[in-house]
Computed example of a mutant assay.
Amino acid sequence: MAGRKRFLVTKILNVVVSAVQILLGLYIVLKLFGAAEVPFVRWIYDLSKPFLAPFEGVFKPILFQEEYLLDLSALFALIIYSIVGYIIIRLVMAIESR
C-alpha cells in the first residue's frame, strides 16, 4: 500500500510542477513574441502573476531588435520552480521508500 501511496503523491506533484512549468513557459513565449492582449493571453498573464510575483524585478528584461522581449525574471522563476519541484518529488520518494 505504501508504494501505491508514494506513486499517487509523486504523480500529483508531477502534474502540479508540470502545470506551473507549462504556464510559465507560455507566459515567456507570449511575452517574447509580443502577443496581442486577447482574452487567452490575459488569462495566461493573470494565472502567471502569483507564480511570478516573488521573482519580479530580479533581472531586467532583454529587448531584441526592438520587438522581442525576453523576461529573464520569468525564465529564472521557471528554472527555480523546476528545481524545487524536482527536489520535493525526490524527497517524497525518499521518505516514502523508508
Score class of each variant (00 low, 15 high):
19 A>Y: 00
32 L>F: 15
12 I>D: 12
8 L>K: 11
25 G>E: 13
86 Y>I: 02
71 D>F: 05
95 I>N: 10
17 V>Q: 06
55 F>G: 04
74 A>D: 04
72 L>Y: 10
23 L>E: 06
53 A>D: 14
48 S>K: 06
95 I>W: 14
9 V>F: 10
10 T>C: 15
84 V>P: 05
43 W>D: 12
11 K>A: 15
21 Q>V: 09
38 V>D: 10
45 Y>W: 14
37 E>N: 13
19 A>L: 14
94 A>S: 11
55 F>M: 00
26 L>C: 13
1 M>T: 08
72 L>V: 13
50 P>K: 09
51 F>N: 01
42 R>H: 11
58 V>C: 02
6 R>P: 00
17 V>A: 14
79 I>E: 01
86 Y>H: 11
27 Y>E: 05
29 V>L: 15
38 V>A: 15
43 W>E: 13
14 N>K: 12
72 L>W: 12
90 R>L: 04
89 I>K: 14
89 I>W: 03
89 I>G: 14
45 Y>N: 07
63 L>G: 01
1 M>I: 09
24 L>V: 07
55 F>K: 14
40 F>Y: 09
94 A>M: 12
20 V>N: 08
91 L>F: 04
87 I>M: 04
53 A>K: 15
36 A>M: 07
4 R>G: 02
7 F>G: 13
76 F>E: 09
36 A>E: 12
50 P>F: 05
13 L>A: 09
27 Y>W: 09
4 R>D: 00
6 R>W: 00
98 R>S: 12
17 V>M: 00
24 L>G: 09
15 V>M: 14
28 I>F: 11
39 P>V: 04
12 I>A: 15
97 S>E: 15
63 L>V: 14
17 V>K: 03
68 Y>C: 03
20 V>L: 02
63 L>E: 13
75 L>N: 02
54 P>N: 06
49 K>G: 06
9 V>P: 01
98 R>W: 09
62 I>G: 00
40 F>D: 05
55 F>V: 03
8 L>Q: 09
87 I>T: 05
61 P>F: 07
87 I>C: 01
11 K>I: 10
16 V>L: 15
3 G>Q: 12
19 A>Q: 06
32 L>A: 15
11 K>W: 12
41 V>T: 14
96 E>S: 15
53 A>W: 11
78 L>F: 10
46 D>P: 02
3 G>H: 10
92 V>H: 05
32 L>Y: 14
87 I>D: 03
6 R>L: 10
52 L>M: 06
82 S>Q: 04
4 R>T: 08
47 L>D: 08
57 G>D: 06
47 L>H: 12
69 L>A: 06
